[in-house]
Amino acid sequence: MNILELRGISKIYGQLSALSEIDLDVAQGEWLAIMGPSGSGKTTVMNIIGCLDKPSCGSVVLDGQELSALSADELTAIRRDKIGLIFQQFHLISYLTALENVMVAQYYHSLVDEKEALAALDRVGLADRAKHLPRQLSGGEQQRVCIARALINYPSIILADEPTGNLDEANERVVMDILHQLHREGSTIVVVTHAPEVAAHAERTVVLEYGKIARIVLGGDPSKAPEVGEACGAGA
């Protein structure tokens, strides 16, 4: 069963076509990587999947709900209920503790629950750092708080934008281990990255070039793995 279906997605900024006729399906519980060089359109795809932007044409169906016709407020509600976002820059609120940063997501979603937020931090190994401010945490720890925040409302899909882009190797390993754990538990994960070693963890990698799907690769490193599709239009 597909959790996400993109059909004929294009995005045009002025005269620039950022995405052109993208078709993509993501199965429930799948780990998908989206790769591509700068300007290939991966951030645009991420924004469209994450309901932060709307496509110029085409349809997006997330968890059975068509998104392209929704208003800004309705997209906000979808983001709140169905999507967990992990950012390269972590984007933690500087004046709130790790625990409060997780609880902020609860606050906008429904009701705050300190025990549950603490459990989410425990899940990423940060229960003992709950009362620390972001500036008192290492980059890896901040990213783990960001992951705990993304998980707290049980999203249908976790979207990670260069999740290890600002981390050293050791922390990269920790973060990827957490993503593996989430995947094992059944979470659907979409990672946008330009790093093959990050994409290598995914079950399937979509490579974008010039706003189109250049190829889809099953398993780890797209430079080594066998290709299963070419050009645009390849489904899962």
Partner: peptide, 10 residues
């Protein structure tokens, strides 16, 4: 922006 991204309404 972050708050809006994680679901804060206007």
């Amino acid at each position: 922006g972050l708050k809006k991204a994680i679901g804060a309404e206007n």
